[in-house]
Structures are given as structure tokens and as C-alpha cells.
Amino acid sequence: MLEIKNISKSLGGNSVLKHCSLKIEDGKVFGLVGVNGAGKSTLLRCIAGIFQVEEGEILIDGEPVYENEKIKKQILFISDDPYYPLNATLTSLKKFYQTFYDWNEERFQEFYKIFNLPLDKPINNFSKGMKRQVFILISLAIMPKYLILDESFDGLDPVMRLNFKRALMEILADGKMTVLISSHSLRECEEICDAFGILENGCIQTSGDLEALKNQVHKIQLGFKDEISKELFKDLDLLYFKKVSHIVTLVVRGDIEEIKQYLKLLNPILMDVLNVSFEELFIYEIMKKEGNFYE
């Protein structure tokens, strides 16, 4: 299990992570989301043992990650713009990662057929998407216990994204690998991730099981005969409120049955419960934190 305990980290005098805590169960696919500059990459680099935290600790199976060879062997970090030496080829990069990690050649060959990348051509000449495929292929061949992907989906074409997801699902079926993904594409995260964390103001504001959260948050559309005051909804845990004439749209957190009962007392002529996507959830959470959830 990965435990982040009350960590703080500053970059260039700015406090990026402030008393941030998080727990990630083994075998999960964890989606880390946050607005630009929230500190997602910094948090991932701290987890990978690249940056040393100023306060708190990061533990994997109870052991600190920083400067711990044994633990770091179980982690593979793929940054948003991964490094490769000048004139490096897939073969030379494979050699590099083989030097430091346990390499499964069989799995490499299996996924290599899917990705179909040139082995001996300089990676420098590859497109952005192809470069990402190279590192995804490497991560699949290594299959570390903890795979950290910093916006690694970005730049992949839909077919390759699907291939990667399938490959990841296949590996994840064993339950031996934990994946941490930070991405701006919340739709992608929603499809792959089973847990999530929203990073805001330097700490994890919301985290947990994605399905559980989706069951906790509901988008409801209501129609009323007469114009209705928003004051009537003040007892609900509102994330979003929008009123257009006699139609009200709410995003509300809580038990759906209790919410329905509460709303029925307001005598709506129409009440629809709609699905909430992860992207919407993220937007509503952020909007509420910023204090502008009423339109």
C-alpha cells in the first residue's frame, strides 16, 4: 500500500504541496486530477523518490521511498515528456531499462506486436504519440508494482489509447500492479480508474472510490409550476445550482432517496435524476471550492 503522510514540498520558494495525505490500496488504478499548477507532477515526483519532501513521509509497504533502492525497484515513473539520449532507439532504451529493472521479454514481444514501433530508428524522429507509445511499451514490459504515469495518455491516438487501456486491463487483472495516472483527460481516467484524488491548493481535497463517489453525487433536473427561490434548497449539500425560469438543475451530494424525499416536498412537476460524469464531478467540486457554484 502506498501511504502519503502529511507531506509538504516547495518549489522555488512557492509552497506546492501543503500537508498532503493520501492512501492508495494495492491493485488500484488511481487517477490524480487537479487544475493546472495544482502540484500533480510534483506529487508524482515525490512518490517516485525524485524529489525529497520537506515534511511528512511517503511509504510503500511501510518503507520510505526516498533513496530506497529496494522500494524504487518496484516503481516506474514515466513523466509527461520522458528523457531519452540523443540518437537513442527503442533497442537502446530497452537496454537502459533492462539494466535497472526486471524485464519481461515475452511481454515486450507480445505488446511490441500491437504497438508496432521501429526498433532501430532514432526515437528523436518519432512523433509525440509514438514517443509515448515507446515508454508505455517499456512500462508494460517492466510491469512494476507501482506504475506512475504523468499525463502519459496525452498525445496518443484513439486506437493506441484503446490498445494501451486493453493492455493495462489485462495486466491489472492479476491485481499485482498499482497504477497512478495524472491526466487532464478525465474521461480517459473515468474509463480506467477505480479510485481518484482531486489535488487542490497543495493537498488532496477529495479522494476515494470513483463509483462510490458517483453514487454520492447526483445531478437532478426539476420543473416547478411557479418560480422558486434557491433558499428552499439550502439544507442540501449543493455542488451546483442553476435556475432557468421554472427549471432548476442541481448537483447535490448525499443519499439519493433522502434527497428525492426532500425535493418531493417542494412539489416539483418534473424530477429527473441524471448521470454525473467524472469530468462533471471534478468541475463541480472545483467550482464549489472556489465559491461560485451558483449561476
Binding site: G49, I50, E69, K73, I75, Y83
Partner: peptide, 19 residues
């Protein structure tokens, strides 16, 4: 050189070798 570039820092210092 690799210590002075962000990209290579990410790769080399996430490797399982003590500094």
C-alpha cells in the same frame, strides 16, 4: 549534464540507485 536537465533528472533519479 543529466543532473542539469529536468527531463533526464526525472528518468535517472527515479532509477533504483542511491544518489
Amino acid at each position: 549534464n543529466k543532473r542539469l536537465k529536468k527531463k533526464s533528472v526525472d528518468t535517472f533519479y527515479s532509477l533504483p540507485i542511491k544518489k
